[in-house]
Design a binder for these strands. Sequence first.
DNA 1: ATGAAACCTGTAGTAACTACAGATGCAAGG
DNA 2: CCTTGCATCTGTAGTTACTACAGGTTTCAT
Lengths: 132, 132
Amino acid sequence: MGKDFTIGKLSSQTGVNIETIRYYEKEGILPAPPRTEGGHRLYSEEHLRRLTFVRRSRELGFSLNEIRTMLDMVDGGNLTCSEVKDVTVKHLENVRDKISDLQKLEKTLKAIASQCKGNKTPDCPIIDSLFS
Amino acid sequence: MGKDFTIGKLSSQTGVNIETIRYYEKEGILPAPPRTEGGHRLYSEEHLRRLTFVRRSRELGFSLNEIRTMLDMVDGGNLTCSEVKDVTVKHLENVRDKISDLQKLEKTLKAIASQCKGNKTPDCPIIDSLFS
DNA sequence: ATGAAACCTGTAGTAACTACAGATGCAAGG
DNA sequence: CCTTGCATCTGTAGTTACTACAGGTTTCAT
């Protein structure tokens, strides 16, 4: 023992900012750690592992609710690989939908922008196309 | 005259929901319309045109601030096509960035998901890869 | 022992709405 | 004329995932 660390260390180790860590605790995603006599939080390796999981998942675009679901499975010990895969695959579908939406958008915006000659007159095909 | 309409009509004509219309008014995006004696809002064609503009722009992913900027140009009469084009092109760049981020995400998620055999054991490569 | 840095709680702000609650207005049928 | 029921009114709180204080306390190195 003796390798416990403060919230500042946990923050710099994981790249998750301090207020976010406290927020995760309030939301029940990170368990409340023990405290010093003065009330400062003291974290262990297990917290580090868990927060790393959360950060990675957030980077992959999982919502906190999705992450909660996965963590519940892990915590409950009733984790089955197929359940986790379900969450992941569903999320993958969302990502693909979002990509295709944005690609449609890109096409439309490109078309609109290309109509504009970029001159100085108040006559603007972009504005016109949005109003009608 | 006499072709003014209520907020409910404006809502159904534009597909923008009633509380959103009131929200736009509060935000200064839609001007406050005249009222009946009882206090109900009465809209005209001009409001319809403007709200259509806002809805189209929102569908194209412009933020309310970007829309405000464009409307200010229109309202101020100091609209130049090139300024509007700037807003649009900048927005187009954002969309493209978002697409490429999501495509990276998609790749990673696909790779992670494919490692999972979907069986029932608590041994899960997805979880493992997120923890370490 | 002292002073700076880190930490504490609690609240409010962000974007763009949505969802009430509780009170009126309005229009049509009887 | 009066009632009934739908539309509308204001104002506030909730959503997501944080961030940014303010004002106070603890810790640690000198």
